[in-house]
Amino acid sequence: MITLKNIEKVYQTKSIETVALQNVNLTVPQGEFLSIMGPSGCGKSTLLNIMGLLDVPSSGTVEIGGKLITSYKDKELAHLRNEKIGFVFQSYHLIQDLSVLDNVELPLLYRPHVSAADRRKRAQVALEKVGLSSRTGHYPSQLSGGQRQRVAIARALIGMPEIILADEPTGNLDSVMGEEIMQILLDLNRQEFTTIVMVTHDEQMAQKTERLVRFFDGQQVSDAKLYDFQKA
């Protein structure tokens, strides 16, 4: 599903060269729930951004669904992100001026063939999945952190992407809320066979996923298979 080969990411300023990722080779099969751990600044988020086609590696190749995307133009990358990938961010990144329903609809706005009525219907279904169907008319500022993250998850899954990339989705939440969010992600992975890559600092959360990859100083230092959800 996602294949990274010899990925290197270097940030260059006038005086300093910072290596964020070095010689990363990683394959994430379809339907896997992978977590990535490591100390702050070790390149986890950079890696997630590269997987999500939001950033480009300094060298190496990225394949999504068997397609090499190195030569893709902005418009093609946007299309691929829209069709294949859903994002969940630590700080939710909901649009404050839009209602919960409008926020969830957002990815479908970029699919011209989806009608407004269909968008609305699918947004309601997505919100039901995350248990927020009663809050459609609310605005992000009227929701708790956990509720905001649920909206963000509904937004990520409305387009039925094959991959969800979650960057510390429970990082801003208390443990109860964190558990709830984690459960939604686990259900999504098990029931809908969605590939999930989650960056986390939380060992407990990571231990609930199928596979755990650890990073240190931009390099992959371990790769452990914890469970096989498909067989379980």
Binding site: R81, H93, L106, Y110
Partner: peptide, 16 residues
């Protein structure tokens, strides 16, 4: 800018 980032992440091209 955060909104621009989100829109881009969810499929908006620069032209959009």
């Amino acid at each position: 800018s955060s909104e621009i980032g989100v829109r881009k992440a969810f499929g908006a091209s620069s032209n959009t």
